[in-house]
């Protein structure tokens, strides 16, 4: 518990009738890169804004470094924010934007100059001091926003979908760069995104949210490989989610066939969701014990081919580097540890 920096305790938030956060509990460790991931409206931005102090939770507590900070206004919190659309001050030039926070804290001008220049070189924009912010490209504005926040040496940087407005190539570049900055400075980054790939590439910890609730907290690899429910499985990469039955421990049935699996602890013959990643299917010659079906269509996706294989009333999504001719009757093989069994999610949560 010693390296815990931020703790959210039973945070709930309602706007009138509408409850947007339902009892969030979360610990953020010092110096970690933690990402809130989820579809729009899942409460990830609201959680970030509560940490930043821009919104006040309806109930629950926020601790920072062991101190209760529920009533500390945002300008007195030791964290800085990078906003979604940058929120740069268009009436100020690049230098004055970055110097804004330092001037408020009455830092001597010579020190401001030094720190601003250091920041500019860190975000690769040295020599941009006098430029008007409106004349910068989206990526450049983004860097200025990051510099403006980091120049104040915050202990935590909050980033609200900061890469959303950038094009794909720039996004990838910035992802790497942000991660590098975070590691170089050794401070905590709390990052909000709806892009699962972004979350997986950058984070130490991913918090998957939906409908105002935390679905799963874990490392990128853990979340990808062991999603706790069908929602997480589907949201983190594509998945086949099939109705199945857990016959007994380590044995399940779906698509009319019975398979060995690695899960246990379900009731006998309990209906479950069976989750299988499309890349975990292997296409083989059809045989009795495995699922067999007809290749309905095939799309080239660059690295792999995406195929739909229809077997009975179930259509399986299959990724494979080897194409198969449409109409072929194929078998689909899957290893026991690639079969993920999930408790059926209650209908109200969907």
């Amino acid at each position: 518990m010693k390296d815990n920096l931020i703790r959210l305790e039973n945070i709930s938030m309602s706007y009138g009738e509408k409850q947007v956060l339902k009892s969030i509990n979360l610990d953020v460790r010092d110096k970690e890169f933690i990402t809130f991931l989820g579809p729009s409206g899942c409460g990830k931005t609201t959680t970030l804004r509560i940490i930043g102090g821009f919104e006040h939770q309806t109930s629950g507590n926020v601790y920072f470094d062991g101190q209760l900070i529920n009533d500390v206004p945002p300008h007195k919190r030791q964290l800085n924010t990078v906003f979604q659309k940058y929120a740069l001050f268009t009436h100020l030039n690049v230098y004055d934007n970055i110097a804004f926070g330092l001037r408020i804290s009455k830092t001597p001008e010579h020190e401001i100059k030094e720190r601003v220049q250091k920041m500019l070189s860190m975000v690769n924009l040295s020599g941009y001091e006098k430029r008007a912010v409106v004349s910068l490209s989206g990526g450049e504005q983004q860097r200025i926003a990051i510099a403006r926040a980091l120049v104040n040496h915050p202990r935590v940087l909050l980033l609200d979908e900061p890469l959303g407005a950038l094009d794909l190539k720039l996004r990838k570049e910035m992802q790497t760069e942000l991660k590098a900055i975070q590691q170089a400075l050794g401070i905590t980054f709390i990052f909000v995104t709806h892009d699962q790939e972004e979350a997986l590439t950058m984070s130490d910890t991913v918090v998957v949210m939906k409908g105002g609730k935390i679905q799963q907290i874990g490392t990128p690899i853990g979340i990808y490989n062991e999603p706790v429910n069908a929602f997480v499985a589907d949201f983190i990469g594509e998945s086949n989610i099939i109705d199945g039955i857990m016959n007994e421990d380590y044995v399940c049935t779906f698509g009319g066939k019975t398979f060995d699996c690695t899960d246990c602890g379900f009731a006998k013959n309990e209906p479950v969701d069976v989750v299988i990643r499309p890349e975990d299917f292997r296409m083989v010659m059809p045989r009795e014990e495995i699922i067999c079906g007809i290749v309905e269509n095939i799309v080239f996706k660059g690295v792999h081919y995406e195929m739909h294989v229809k077997s009975g009333d179930i259509t399986y999504l299959v990724h494979s580097t080897i194409p198969e001719v449409v109409g072929t009757f194929v078998g689909l093989e899957v290893e026991p540890f690639d079969i993920h069994i999930m408790k059926k999610s209650k209908p109200e949560e969907n």
């Binding site: 821009f54 300008h75 926070g101």
Partner: peptide
């Protein structure tokens, strides 16, 4: 967010 950004910066 411009107003919030200023508050955020202290």
């Amino acid at each position: 967010n411009a107003f919030e950004a200023a508050i955020d910066l202290g």
